[in-house]
Amino acid sequence: MILLDAGTTYAKILDTETNERTVKRVSDLEKTFKADVGTGHNINRFAKHSINEIIALANAGKSLIEDGSFTLLDVGSRDAKYVVFENGNFIHSDWNTECGAFTGQAIEILGNYLNIDYSKVEPQKEFITATCGLLGMGHVFDFVASGVEPEIAAARLIKGVCISMYRFAKKPKKIHLTGGLVENRLFVESMPCETVILDRFALLEGVKEYALNKANS
């Protein structure tokens, strides 16, 4: 079975037979590509069956995290979503697509534009309140114009994004993280709480759960 998580920018593909995992830009997917099951913003164009992204995230958490009580946060390029379980029971979930959106994409664009290698930048204590990616970028450019080093200004934005994500997920003691931003060391280290990293293929684990349950039912 071919499973697909088609986000706004990247497509994550899992072949369940060979266990091969691939990441591509969504824009590089062939027009004729059709996964068997998938999830994500762009899924309807590229899969025969689609599953709700929050359900996929919840399934992923249940299958990948041993402890029945957890917060799993997925920060992608366009949006963020989380689920909270306690003793195996669903408690909360939320998905921000409007306010606070495009933060992941903003961080990537900013890194490219200012030529920053995030893995070499130290987390900052000060932060820029990032209501959304666009406003956040505006603040970074203001700081740079006022003489702050571009790396420091960008790191302050990332700290701000982390704080708003932490608040969004209802300030847990420990966050399990997935999504594109988990590969950004600065982002992970700027989180104001303990973090556990699941890789960016976690959502596909949730899709797999769903596909297997469907096949067995």
Partner: peptide, 25 residues
């Protein structure tokens, strides 16, 4: 076990997904 949603004119795809996931979970 509460969830807040807001909506302007016309329900959006993400609001539907959020709502149905909440009800299903």
């Amino acid at each position: 076990r509460g969830m807040f949603i807001d909506m302007d004119i016309g329900i959006t795809r993400s609001t539907v997904a959020k709502l149905t996931a909440f009800l299903q979970l």
